[in-house]
Design a protein around this nucleic acid. Structure first.
Lengths: 278, 278
DNA sequence: AGACCTTACGGCCGGCGTAACAATA
DNA sequence: TATTGTTACGCCGGCCGTAAGGTCT
């Protein structure tokens, strides 16, 4: 029977033009390749080459065969990739979240409940999350609102509320609560990786400038060494503590408090059931 | 590397359900198949089977792999078929003709001029011939008129004229020529395999009944043992002689005399050039 | 007992590299 | 002389079949 290694050799000959060069590239001796091509030719049952005394080249059959061969090889590679990718996916729980904080506990839970699975996670906007859930890019997504798609199932999985972290000398430092509108115009430090929260300040405080920090370290250093206000949340305080030398004032806008929902496809529920039984 | 024979084995296992049966079908021992599948699995790098103590079955990876494998095998088979068909086509001159008589000499010429080629030929109506020439089903066609397609090239290649073959006692036996209309209403013997000629008598002599003979032998026997008139042509006379005991009267209608044209695609001309240099 | 899968063992075929030869540029 | 393709020869790895062992119905 014709075998893939022969097709590999055939396409190598097409690429390199001579048996010698092809044999080099294939890490084999040139006589071996000669014999292998003779055998292939006899298995096709039709001539594939034009032979001069010291020159071998494709005839039209051979050119056609080499094209076909490439397609067969591509498909074989495609098979390997496909099966390996499928296997990897079946050992991976992919979680997408609208914000980093609720992701942390969900990833922890998933790792504990499914110790043999690889947990992959990322933050995205809500629309791509929902798209990704439908296309099975994610098995689980975390949204800041109840999804209304009938093919989804979900549980409430926590909440997060924003606070202003003000320097003690700030004019609003003694308030019990603040609307963002009241802070509009004040420049603030802002940590970049906050998911869907990112759009809220810019929307509600159009006159403020936000000093966006991509590095967590830079963000925390600047809190310590400046008197700029910034945002924190109950979850971030729970995780990292209160920033030193800041007064914590609740943000009163209703948009500043959300309930998170852990969502999956009904179809996929069995695979991640344990996460819904907490 | 993964090889086709392993994929063949994989799909056999899918078809037959157990290694034993698959091994039988593949004419190999069952331990051999066990080992081969183990090797395949290790080459995929992911588990393909669920193993009980005395039962082997696909897991989801394996099912997917078997589907992919079938596609690879199909494509490999497709490659073989494609190349072999291409090779055969390149050694074949396929000739289509509107009538059998001009085909004979053309096929003879082709066989002489291209002794290494296989000559295949058939009779069809003019429209399918032209279609077939365009789609390269034929390299050459023979038409009873000049083609007007710009992509065709052609030469005149003979002519054929019809005659009535009447019994000597026929009322028209002494005529120098006859129009078909004059014979309308008389029953006639008709040989079936006459190509485009077939439609002419029925069209011009609607009141006649034609006793169509599919067998050449039956046709000739009936000429000898009856007094029914029939058609012959100059070419048929040249080939088979005049029918015994018949008077040959020219058919005067203009449709009863045609000039034949040998036609090929301009593109394909080099392949059949010699036939156009006669 | 029969069907099935796996492991162990030894034979052998076929693909491999080396060497030698022939032709070409 | 350097490069290329083909043929001859002998080695050896890997695939094969047989045999044996274990499990399940």
């Amino acid at each position: 029977m014709i075998e893939l290694y022969q097709l590999e050799q055939l396409t190598a000959f097409k690429r390199y033009g001579t048996l010698s060069k092809a044999a080099d590239e294939l890490h084999m001796s040139q006589p071996t390749l000669t014999r292998s091509m003779q055998k292939l030719e006899s298995e096709f049952g039709v001539p594939l080459f034009r032979r001069s005394k010291n020159r071998l080249e494709f005839n039209e059959n051979g050119l056609l065969a080499a094209e076909y061969a490439q397609r067969v090889l591509d498909q074989a590679q495609n098979m390997l990739d496909g099966v390996r990718t499928f296997d990897r996916a079946s050992h991976t729980i992919s979680i997408g979240s609208c914000a980093p904080m609720p992701l942390i506990t969900t990833v922890q839970n998933a790792a504990l409940l499914y110790p043999d699975m690889t947990i992959s996670s990322e933050c995205k906007d809500c629309e791509p999350l929902i798209e990704g859930l439908k296309t099975r890019l994610y098995q689980i997504i975390i949204l800041p609102y109840k999804p209304d798609d009938k093919s989804f199932t979900f549980i409430e999985s926590g909440s997060e509320s924003l606070f202003f972290a003000l320097p003690p000398a700030h004019r609003f430092a003694d308030r019990d609560g603040l609307y963002m509108k009241e802070m509009d115009g004040e420049n603030m430090l802002l940590y970049a990786d906050i998911g869907f929260w990112r759009s809220l300040p810019e929307q509600m405080m159009p006159h403020s400038r936000f000093l966006v920090q991509n590095e967590r370290f830079a963000f925390e250093e600047l809190i310590n060494s400046s008197i700029l206000p910034c945002f924190v949340s109950d979850l971030s305080i729970q995780r990292d503590g209160k920033p030193a030398d800041r007064v914590i004032i609740p943000v009163l806008d209703q948009e500043a408090s959300v309930t998170y929902y852990t969502v999956c496809l009904r179809n996929t529920l069995p695979k991640v059931q344990k996460l819904f039984l907490i």
